[in-house]
Amino acid sequence: MSSQTSQLDGESLQVTRCRQGDGDALAELRERCQNSLLGILLSRGADRTEAEDLLADLWADCVPGQDDRPSILEKFSGKCTLQGWLATVATNRWVDRKRKQSRYVDPGRDGNKENDYLNRLEAASYASEDTLIALLRECLKAAFALCAPEARVLLRLVYLHELSQREIVQMLGWSESKVSRFLSKAMEEIERHTLAEVKKRDAWLELNWQDFVELCETHQIGFM
């Protein structure tokens, strides 16, 4: 049994206990993950107060029965690490909160209660569990759109449909080194354009390429 499989099995037991409202399991989970989640949120651009507030809410939502709601851990599929999943949920909430704040316009002294209400309503309607998915998707799509059609097609053939680079060589009549260089350059461009697009959309969000890919992977396999 690999160490990762055994880690996932151990976490699965802990998650089951947490979902049932086991206080010791919830405390253990918090003890184990609080500092690393705090570090992740700080590295992604949150300030300490924002990060601590978010995590306090996150731990509260792990407890079943709050406002008659099940624990948010019910949504954890068990196919990725629990810490990675919690980091994704926390990042989604933080992005959502920052966007709400940036869209909320303080009506000030001259503002009236009706405008205040409308501003809050608009901000609330913008909030969604899918905020982060939409951001990741739109940034990736924008990056792919900047590639040449040849690059998009070859990347799909090699990395989605698993053709070998040798097969691409035979199809195109290119040298192996040309195919390899072409694919590497396309991947580098996607990385650069994707991260530039993140900055353009949410300048306060600090994501490196590893973070971006991990968030995509967790969304793909980590949620029920």
Binding site: L136, L140, K141, R156, V158, L160, I190, W209, C216, E217
Partner: peptide, 18 residues
């Protein structure tokens, strides 16, 4: 690098509303 691109393409396949 290859594995990362696979993850991204599969993410787009799953979540692209188009």
């Amino acid at each position: 690098m290859a594995e990362r691109l696979q993850i991204l393409l599969k993410f787009l396949e799953r979540f692209d509303d188009e």
